[in-house]
């Protein structure tokens, strides 16, 4: 399978890339793990590819002075897995099961966020963590909250002329526990249901903050705010976790396909939400 003809331009600098992003018929390529298969199937037929893969300023993971973690958009899954990001329990859970080693060696964090596959694991992790998505354009810098960024299947709040440059995670904290639990489709490995959970106990024995996000279930990854609300003030008994998890797909039109109809997916959303919360609490000790 051979893509349609296109022109190719390798950006030598971020400014050069930003001058091209958003012009008609132009697509940005980084690792190409999502875009190239679509182009080979001729489901995507860009007239021009702008290759940002060599932009050193978009690579690497660094700790910010305030303790937050800044992940360059071109950081691959493999690089992320050996970076300080692996110490976030939910990322440590999710990363080894994304794609396969060849995909993790090429696929980038920024690419996954911009592509927004409805079954992608990373967006759920970023939603639960309250991550920030930093974008640049010729107009300047724009910082998006993860909550609200993922607007639909393969659709985000990113403007046409914007390029994701960095993902920022809140600093790690001792009073937080997190986990990622997913039910993968056996052949493809894609998540039928994936749940990212973070629970925080500030001082006492009760949960004071919670971030719960699901992928694979709806049109786009989403925050399960009814689950979060039910967890606040909760001591985390098995019964109370199970009750909170029943709200996993409240207000969401649940997907159905040949792998999992909507009734089964709804049930699995509840089950894996319960497991992710229990695992997150278990890590809190």
């Amino acid at each position: 399978m051979i893509p349609n003809l296109f022109d190719y331009q390798r950006a030598a600098s971020l400014d050069e890339a930003l001058a091209l992003v958003g012009s008609p018929g132009t697509k940005v390529i980084a690792g190409g793990m999502s875009l190239l298969p679509l182009m080979k199937l001729r489901l995507a037929n860009p007239e021009r590819l702008v290759d940002i893969g060599r932009l050193a300023e978009l690579k690497g993971v660094r700790e910010l002075p305030d303790g937050r973690l800044a992940i360059g958009a071109l950081t691959t899954y493999s690089e992320l897995a050996v970076s300080p990001a692996r110490h976030y329990g939910l990322l440590g859970d999710a990363l080894p099961d994304i794609g396969d080693v060849q995909v993790r060696n090429r696929g980038t964090v920024g690419g996954a966020v911009a592509h927004c596959d409805p079954a992608s694991d990373l967006p759920a992790v970023l939603l639960a963590l309250d991550a920030e998505i930093v974008a640049r354009s010729k107009r300047g810098e724009n910082v998006y909250a993860a909550d609200g960024f993922f607007t639909g299947a393969f659709s985000t709040a990113l403007a046409e002329d914007e390029l994701i440059t960095e993902i920022r995670l809140p600093g790690p904290r001792d009073d937080a526990g997190s986990a990622y639990a997913s039910l993968a489709q056996r052949a493809s490995g894609y998540s039928i249901v994936g749940v990212a959970a973070i629970v925080i106990k500030e001082g006492g024995s009760a949960i004071t903050k919670a971030g719960i996000a699901l992928t694979g279930v709806g049109d786009a990854p989403y925050r399960a705010k009814a689950v979060e609300a039910a967890l606040i003030g909760n001591e985390g008994t098995p019964e109370s976790i199970a009750e909170a998890a029943t709200h996993a797909s409240d207000g969401v039109t649940v997907n159905g396909d040949i792998h999992a109809d909507s009734e089964y997916r709804t049930a699995m959303a509840v089950a894996y939400t319960r497991r992710a919360i229990a695992a997150a609490l278990g890590r809190l000790g």
Binding site: Y8, I29, G32, P37, Q102
Partner: peptide, 10 residues
């Protein structure tokens, strides 16, 4: 890496 999913120019 999977060489069917990487452009030669990359």
């Amino acid at each position: 890496i999977k060489s069917c999913t990487m452009l030669a120019v990359q």
